[in-house]
Amino acid sequence: MALGKEQMKLLYRNLVRADHFDKMMMNRIMQGKLIGFYHPGDGAMAAGVGASTFLGDNDILNPHHRAHGLGYAAGRGVDVGRYLAEHTGKVDGCCGGRSSFHWSFPEKKMYGASGFIGWHFCPVVGWGWACKRKGNQMVLMASGDGSYGQGGAHEAMLFAMNWKLPIVFFCENNGMAIHSTISDMHPMPDISSLAQGYGMPAVVIDGQDVFAVAETVIAAREHALAGKGPTFVEAKTLRLREHDVGTPDLARAEPREAAYLEELKKRDPVVLATTRVLAEKVLTRKQIDKIYQEAKEEVAAIEKFADESPVAQPSIEELLAGVYVA
């Protein structure tokens, strides 16, 4: 199904925004203005934006950990000011400063990230089960290639196919898990080949092409909502930088080669999308400049909001009161 011009404009805008958010986070962690760590999404922001921009409000969205889910946050319309405030331990953070990078927006049906990669393969079964019981809602469950080493991944695919759950297993395959290469960690180059064992329809797409990702996920979502069960979408992407900012960028124990990384940069999704929207006259250069200007202003407002919010340091009594529902 071809995208309309308005859809393409929205995707392009969200991609530029997501790219700015990611660069904001990289700058801040290097300036010491972010808590914990940051796993940059630089050069790989298209998959999240394409997968999330056209979901329904009731659909459950589990973001990928890379870029701390910012591509998905951009597509979902999350309040990134509260997101950044959370990552800086502020009172206006989306979780009151308690979660830092394990952020969540339950009202957006983004139920939280975890430092245990692959954790979501557990609740995703219940998300899918609940969506099926309620009807007309589905789950977009994003994760990376590394997480498919978890046994829970296989349990989730088994349950999803048994019960024909409305789940899209959306895998961002960048070929790297910290310093490990996929050829060392998986017997097959395509993670989606795992879906075959469960009889699950699967497709491999170019994760650098935000428009291709969106078209595929729209179709997979329709498949899910029609009661036809889960699908597996593997978006091939790349990793331009180290696993998390400040650690060495290795493949196995060797530094990744500069010439190879330069080659990867030619596949930057923003560059690819810009070429296409200009070629197809979806946007003019002037309109693109405006989108960039607005993204810069949005980032400035986000940082101002987060920086002006007080540090969250509630008393032990207040924290104790937050553990249980009274």
């Binding site: 459950i60 339950p106 139920y111 393969f121 557990c122 609740p123 995703v124 079964v125 219940g126 998300w127 899918g128 089960w129 609940a130 969506c131 019981r133 309620k134 046994g151 829970g152 349990e155 989730a156 088994l158 349950f159 048994n162």
Partner: peptide, 27 residues
């Protein structure tokens, strides 16, 4: 629909409850 048997897979079995609880069920 309400007495749900699962495969021998505790992560998926538990996940059925865990995820459904987030969506308002009481498993």
């Amino acid at each position: 629909d309400r007495i749900v048997d699962t495969p021998l897979a505790e992560i998926g079995m538990y996940g059925t409850a865990f995820g459904a609880a987030m969506e308002g069920f009481r498993p």
